[in-house]
């Protein structure tokens, strides 16, 4: 009971501490560092939401950037100033050309469009498993890129939309980081989350227990897509430009790396891996500039990733959350999950 009370206050305090930190940062550091922190936040949203599919449910999806692109483009078209639309997108239907939304509704609509896209492709694609699913989601990403490239009256083709209003700031990113982590945390520790973990460990056993396979998978996929869509909007309004190649296959791999390094299924792990990977690149960049050895940061990071995968093949945290964050009851359920995977022959040392 003690632990429960402690936790009840721990999370609100953490959120408050984060908010104070955001306030201090915004008034003390320069634009450059603020933008790095914003991108780190966006990466947290992406990694944690990708964890829903890749980590919890064991669906290896590479389609996250595609949902970002859907969300990003929808929001970008909606928030684009009317005067600029007239100049850059003359072929836009007049009802769309007259719209100029503020960030929040655009974010939510962008996220919902991404969710819709996830539903549409989820039904056929989620019948596939393992490598096949990875290839199918990759295919979706490429098809979407081609579509955006050729839908010139809405997207301006390969040139993309540029000069978007700079609406994303650290408050918005922080808000969505908190929402994403909160929702994913709740999902993980609910019956839905347990169903997801069960499906990952042993599909047949899960089905025998009465877990609706396809519904649970689509839930995971669509929920992940919503946050990816939101992150895409935040991204577009931070870079202030969006093109068909903004959200690439390389990005998909970076996100998967964050999930794998953090530990498939661990929200804390994904958060920390996202923070680490984003900041290490920037910390190493003065090294590149002073030595003139451009590309060395990529090499150092790759070696680091190899080492992590060799010495901690299940990632930093495995499927678990750090012990002091989890209620006693939940920890027990984690143990059950682990013993289930043990019986399954996959084994685990975390």
């Amino acid at each position: 009971m003690m632990g429960w009370n402690r936790l009840k206050w721990f999370f609100p305090m953490l959120i408050l501490a984060g908010a104070i930190l955001v306030f201090i940062l915004r008034s003390s550091v320069n634009d450059y560092i603020l933008s790095i922190i914003c991108f780190a936040g966006i990466n947290i949203i992406l990694a944690v939401s990708l964890n829903l599919t890749n980590g919890f449910t064991g669906l290896f999806s590479l389609g996250h950037p595609a949902f970002m692109a859907v969300g990003g483009y929808v929001a970008a078209i909606l928030t684009f100033p009317v005067t600029r639309k007239a100049m850059l997108l003359p072929a836009l239907p007049s009802w769309l050309a007259a719209q100029q939304w503020s960030l929040l509704p655009a974010l939510i609509l962008g996220g919902l469009c991404a969710t819709l896209a996830a539903f549409l492709i989820g039904f056929p694609v989620l019948r596939l498993k393992g490598h096949y699913l990875a290839v199918a989601t990759l295919g979706f990403l490429i098809i979407l890129q081609v579509l955006i490239t050729n839908l010139e009256s809405f997207t301006r083709g390969p040139l993309g939309l540029n000069g978007l209003p700079l609406l994303t700031n650290l408050w918005w990113v922080y808000l969505w980081v908190v929402i994403t982590i909160y929702v994913c945390w709740k999902v993980k520790h609910s019956s839905l989350g347990r169903s997801m973990l069960a499906i990952r460990e042993n599909e047949m056993a899960a089905e025998c227990l009465g877990i609706p396979l396809s519904r649970t998978r689509i839930m995971a996929f669509a929920l992940g897509a919503f946050f990816a869509g939101v992150a895409g909007c935040l991204w577009a309004h931070l870079v202030t430009a969006i093109t068909p190649t903004s959200f690439s296959v390389i990005m998909a791999f970076h996100l998967v790396v964050m999930v794998v390094v953090g530990g498939s299924g661990s929200i804390t792990g994904a958060t920390i891996a996202a923070l680490m990977l984003t900041s290490v690149v920037e910390i190493l960049s003065p090294l590149e500039e002073n030595l003139g050895a451009y590309g060395i940061s990529e090499i150092i990071i790759s070696i680091g990733l190899l080492l992590i995968l060799i010495y901690r093949p299940r990632g930093i945290f495995g499927t678990q959350e750090p012990a002091f964050l989890v209620k006693q009851r939940q920890r027990v359920s984690g143990e059950v999950g682990r013993s289930l995977s043990y019986q399954n022959g996959k084994g685990g040392t975390s």
């Binding site: 933008s35 790095i36 991108f39 870079v239 202030t240 430009a241 960049s285 500039e289």
Partner: peptide, 20 residues
């Protein structure tokens, strides 16, 4: 010289870095 890695995110960060 700021390397932006053929990546738009790195491009935006690089621009802000130069300005800072």
């Amino acid at each position: 010289g700021i390397n932006t890695k053929t990546d738009q995110k790195a491009t935006a960060i690089g621009a802000k870095k130069a300005l800072a």
